[in-house]
Design a protein around this nucleic acid. Structure first.
Lengths: 233, 233
DNA sequence: TTATAATTTTAGGCAAAGCTAAAATTATGT
DNA sequence: ACATAATTTTAGCTTTGCCTAAAATTATAA
């Protein structure tokens, strides 16, 4: 009568999303943060490194599932339902990144691909416990905010260190582009996520800075200040 | 932060296995432990809750990939290559189970379905670090041995506590059938994985036992002794 | 305004992994 | 031994998620 018995195992109909569907919702969620209104097929295709025709297919399917609103030739917009699922995937991704860095001692720039897989593991209880285990972190190792369990993403005032003026201070929440050398440089300077940084001086002509990190003072170039995100409360 | 770079991290062509393929290899591996020689299509189908015709399809594909040897109407046998991959999937499954129980405080009987998903995460580095993080455990929370990184599974002398005679002892390595009440009972008796148990006395007529657990003595029924696995070295 | 460019959709195909129904093969019982 | 039962395979269909090529629509620029 019903072809596949295994279907009965899915108690929560909402989360009966495939990996591909979750990835689309996630991508659209990110695009909506950057620009309001309908998201174009092309934009989605580009961000997912896939073809526009594939996007059209999937977007139509997600529209049928009420995950988004889609108008031919116009684009897509997430519904509350779709946004919630996207946020939960991003929450999982970022929590796992925290786990990989904090517990397994991976570096910031090594964890993305693994988290990309882990984000699709289905178990609410798992995420509840993982979150608790990690001390309910607010940010992932790149300084990006972790959506709460209701899918609410705290939009934070993350800005580049280079934008701070003399005597302003912030907490390091991430890097713009991470590469091993830069991360090693930060290690040497004793800067990591959560480090308080105060601007003691800023040179006008080259944008270099003298900053306070803990009890030490440090000199950093504009290149560095342009690559570090801080949060000013 | 790095939206959707599709990165091809499959360095090892051998491990470019789909979830389905990995599940088949795993199932056949388990069946080979129970009975030597070729494994029948029907046996595989039954253990995977799928149809024999589906098994034939997949087994032919796995034979092409040299994961197993298949003869029409005869059955399948894993090659070294296939066995190694199966063992690595089982290793991952069991390590994740340890993580879920030891770190996230799940109960023994709650972790299977989650580990069933986690076992397919692809990253050698992840498993190396996870193993280290967990203290390179030899057994999972059900007392089943964890294959080493080379795919070697220590075949252990796991036996039911009820098989031990007076004055014999063993280390608790798992339960046969786990349910919440039984696990709570064990908690009360201070028995868990790794607990040393010595048989102080065994009643002939009902199989009940007096055992030593740490410094305490305990009385247990045959029902309990029939449901507890111990390892005698 | 209209021709051309860009975007988006449709149509048709492919591979994975499952299914059913029917055919082929092997096993069994008397 | 041989009919029947059980097992296994084949053939053909379905869905998912992607693709290419062509058609449809919208945008842009002279």
């Amino acid at each position: 009568m019903f072809p596949n018995k295994k279907i009965y195992l899915c108690i929560n109909i909402n989360s009966m999303m495939t990996f591909a569907e979750e990835n689309y919702l996630k991508a659209i969620f990110h695009l909506e943060l950057e620009s309001a209104g309908e998201i174009s097929t092309n934009a989605i295709a580009e961000s997912m490194e896939t073809k526009p025709s594939s996007v059209t297919d999937m977007v139509q399917k997600l529209a049928e599932k009420k995950m988004l609103v889609y108008k031919r030739y116009k684009g897509a917009q997430l519904t509350d339902k779709g946004r919630k699922i996207a946020a939960s995937v991003i929450r999982k991704h970022r929590l796992w990144e925290v786990f990989l860095v904090e517990k397994l001692k991976f570096h910031w720039d090594e964890v993305h691909d693994i988290a990309e897989q882990l984000e699709h593991i289905q178990s609410d209880e798992l995420i509840t416990r993982l979150d608790k285990y990690l001390g309910s972190p607010d940010f992932d190792p790149h300084g990006d905010p972790i959506p709460d369990k209701h899918g609410v993403l705290k939009r934070t005032e993350k800005k580049l260190l280079s934008k701070l003026e003399k005597n302003q201070q912030g907490v390091c929440v991430g890097v713009k582009e991470s590469n091993s050398e830069f991360l090693q440089y930060l290690d040497k300077k004793k800067i990591s996520i959560g480090t308080k940084i105060k601007v003691l001086g800023k040179e006008f002509f080259d944008g270099s800075m003298v900053i306070q990190v803990g009890k030490d003072q440090s000199f950093i170039s504009k290149t560095v200040a342009d690559n570090l995100y801080v949060q000013t409360q």
